[in-house]
Each structure stands twice: as C-alpha cells, then as structure tokens.
Amino acid sequence: MNKPAQRTKADRRVPLQANLVPLLTQRGIETYYGVSTWQIDQWRKVGMPDEPFAGQGRRCNLAKCQAWHAGTRRTRGRWRPPRDPRRAPRTAR
C-alpha cells in the first residue's frame, strides 16, 4: 500500500476568483497595523470600514482600510476625516 505524497500548505493554495476579496479578522488587522484591539475599536468609531460577515466577529477589507487611513488625518491624538478644501481655513485664537 503506497502512501500518497504529502502536499504542503503552499501546494494547496489556489487563487481567488476575480470578484472575491480576502477579508482580515480583527486580529489580522491588529497585527497588520501593530495596534491593540482598543485602537481598532476607536478607528471603527470614527469611520474605519468593516464588512458584513455572517459568522462571529468582524472582517475588514485591507484595501478599504488602507484607503481610509490615507484619507484621514491625525489631530491631537484623534483620527479625523480630511478637511473640506471648500471651507475657510481656521484662524489662530
């Protein structure tokens, strides 16, 4: 009886279909950005996108999160949306 050749995980990898996007778990997003669960929750409160998911937890599309971070600015420890260029600039107090 011959043993079937063992395949490694890399051998079993298949490409995603064109319309599918890999979603990261909360732990995956924390690891990617190197931050805590608390920080991810704070970012979500101010608008970081997450995707609907039928199972437990939350899932995030990394490309959308990266775009959100590129479009936000950090001011006094808070993440805020970019300023509308049509608004008048703030004056010094």
Rank of each mutant, 00 (worst) to 15 (best):
A54Q: 12
T72C: 15
R73F: 03
K64I: 00
H69M: 10
L16V: 09
F53S: 09
N19L: 06
L20A: 08
W79V: 14
Q6N: 15
T37C: 14
R87A: 14
A67P: 06
A5P: 05
L23N: 01
E30Q: 14
P49E: 01
K3F: 06
N19C: 05
R44N: 15
R76T: 11
A18T: 11
P82G: 05
A18G: 03
P4F: 15
R59D: 02
D50E: 09
R76Q: 13
R59T: 09
L16C: 08
A92D: 11
N19H: 09
T25E: 03
A63V: 07
W38K: 10
S36N: 15
R59E: 03
R12W: 02
A92I: 10
A88R: 12
Q17A: 15
H69E: 09
A5G: 05
P85W: 06
R86G: 07
A88M: 10
A88K: 14
L23F: 01
P89L: 11
A10W: 11
P85F: 03
P22L: 00
D84V: 13
M48E: 03
G77C: 06
A54S: 12
R86D: 15
K45S: 13
R73T: 13
G28A: 04
T72N: 14
L16H: 12
G71F: 00
T37N: 12
N19R: 04
R74V: 15
E51M: 06
C65G: 09
I40M: 03
N19V: 00
F53T: 11
I29A: 02
A88V: 11
Q42I: 10
W43E: 01
Q6F: 15
R83E: 03
M48S: 02
R78S: 05
P15Y: 01
R44T: 12
P85V: 09
R7I: 06
W38P: 02
E51L: 01
A88H: 04
L23E: 01
R86Y: 11
L20C: 07
L23M: 04
F53W: 12
R90N: 02
F53N: 10
D84S: 12
R83L: 07
A10L: 13
R12V: 10
W68H: 09
R73V: 13
